[in-house]
Lab assay of single mutants.
Amino acid sequence: QTTIQVRVPYRVVGLVVGPKGATIKRIQQRTHTYIVTPGRDKEPVFAVTGMPENVDRAREEIEAHITL
């Protein structure tokens, strides 16, 4: 297991999390990772935990939302 920090712009935190957390839950299920969402007043950084290859996939999925 490994944990990485995925930093995103403030404006996309809501996009990545999705309505009621649906998007981030879907990313967690698809990539078999555990993702901690940043709090409102915190740095916009997601903490992604899982097997290294799964963590990389989750990071790619999160980063895909940044380019939307």
Rank of each mutant, 00 (worst) to 15 (best):
Q1G: 04
Q1K: 13
Q1T: 11
T2I: 15
T2Y: 11
T3H: 00
I4F: 06
I4M: 06
I4G: 04
R7P: 10
R7N: 04
R7T: 05
V8C: 01
P9N: 08
P9F: 00
P9W: 07
P9V: 06
Y10Q: 15
Y10I: 11
Y10F: 11
Y10N: 15
Y10A: 15
Y10D: 14
R11F: 13
R11D: 15
V12R: 06
V12I: 09
V13N: 07
G14S: 11
G14R: 09
G14W: 03
L15A: 13
G18M: 00
G18K: 04
P19Q: 11
P19W: 07
P19S: 09
K20D: 10
G21H: 06
A22H: 03
A22W: 06
T23Q: 03
T23D: 07
I24S: 06
I24L: 08
K25T: 08
K25E: 04
K25C: 06
R26D: 13
I27R: 04
Q28K: 03
Q29N: 01
R30L: 11
R30A: 11
T31I: 06
H32I: 04
H32D: 13
H32N: 15
T33S: 05
Y34S: 14
Y34C: 14
Y34V: 15
Y34N: 15
Y34L: 14
I35S: 03
I35M: 06
I35G: 00
T37V: 12
T37C: 13
T37D: 04
T37W: 13
G39W: 04
G39C: 04
G39S: 12
G39D: 14
R40W: 06
D41I: 00
D41Y: 09
D41H: 10
D41F: 04
K42D: 14
K42V: 08
K42W: 02
K42I: 00
P44H: 00
F46Y: 01
F46A: 03
V48W: 00
V48P: 07
V48M: 09
V48N: 00
T49I: 13
T49K: 09
T49A: 03
G50L: 04
G50E: 04
P52Q: 11
P52R: 10
P52A: 06
P52K: 15
E53V: 07
E53Y: 09
E53F: 05
V55L: 03
D56N: 15
R57P: 01
R57S: 08
R57M: 12
A58H: 00
E60C: 07
E60L: 11
E61N: 02
E61H: 04
E61G: 03
E61S: 04
I62M: 06
I62G: 02
I62C: 03
I62S: 03
E63V: 03
E63A: 03
H65M: 15
I66D: 09
T67R: 15
T67Y: 10
L68K: 14
